[in-house]
Design a protein around this nucleic acid. Structure first.
Lengths: 158, 158
DNA sequence: CGTACCACTGGGCAAGTTGCCCAGCGATGA
DNA sequence: TCATCGCTGGGCAACTTGCCCAGTGGTACG
């Protein structure tokens, strides 16, 4: 659960050069190969590293428009709404948040015009009372984890 | 830019079993190794596949609380705010959206109490006028891309 | 109608990596 | 004092990678 400095360096190295192998990592970190292997196994079984899935860019796939929709759900319809939204490919993420029984929904679309279609499809579902949408214009800080890893790795040792 | 069926299957396969190699993929897909290699290279240089960085779970790192903060920025301070928030490790993502000159900010914290510290640190910056925060309770649809990939891969061929 | 060009196949090669094993060592804790 | 744990450093066979090649079918263009 707690991460030490070596774990941190492994994760950072892996993030910078994902194609790197265990052997090369051990060389760069100055430790034995078995050590890196053991650490990696531990990090994965701990759930710290969930996997190494490919990071796909929706924009390159033809979906350059991202938006966030805040949904207001009819009482008791939460489960139905989740199940429905799971079936919509353009829904990339769905979160329930504090506030008036709300959900936050990350959407993509082929264009601003297409976004209308996606939103209609989302809010067309019966259990959704109201939706307000914000279109993403810029992404100054793309989803990242490294700074947090470094903090988690560096803060503990002392 | 456009993805065909084989590209889609490669991405899906890669997402399901990231440790798989090119040779094993070619066997499962029933194509020559060189073909898979060429497709992968193309997908990466196209930017469709950005990389294979490790997916780290903030919760396993000791940051189980996620929240979204909507920030209202003082006129003309946008760039300063971005630069500042980039330095805060708990800020995992920052987006500018339509609406009253707003930014949306994804945060994590060690606990609800710790979230207060993080928020103070975020909104303590001068260029931020107001912030409203929503704590994430559940994550019914974790960030995903496969359904979209399948749609992009399956819709074109006909 | 012929000719390039392109993507794919199927094969072959050396070099490197992986997964697995082992013995030894130093620090930690009972 | 002894057992445990994590790390080291080494060795091994099996596999994969990166790279090369010639041949083939389809498509676009002259």
């Amino acid at each position: 659960m707690a991460i030490d400095h070596l774990d941190g360096r492994i994760i950072v190295l892996l993030a910078e050069e994902p194609r790197i192998g265990v052997l090369e990592m051990s060389r760069r970190l100055g430790v034995a190969r078995g050590t890196v292997q053991a650490r990696l196994d531990r990090l994965q079984s701990n759930g710290v590293i969930r996997g190494f899935g490919p990071q796909v860019d929706p924009a390159a796939l033809g979906y350059p428009v991202t938006a966030f929709a805040t949904l207001q759900i009819r009482q008791g319809q939460g489960a139905d709404v989740r199940a429905y939204l799971t079936t919509v490919p353009e829904v990339l993420e769905l979160l329930t948040t504090t506030g008036s029984g709300d959900m936050l929904c990350r959407l993509v679309a082929r264009s601003n015009a297409d976004l209308q279609r996606v939103i209609d499809r989302v809010v067309g579902f019966d259990g959704i009372v109201r939706a307000s949408t914000a279109i993403v214009m810029e992404n100054p800080v793309p989803l990242r984890i490294i700074p947090l890893v470094e903090q988690a790795a560096g803060a503990e040792p002392p």
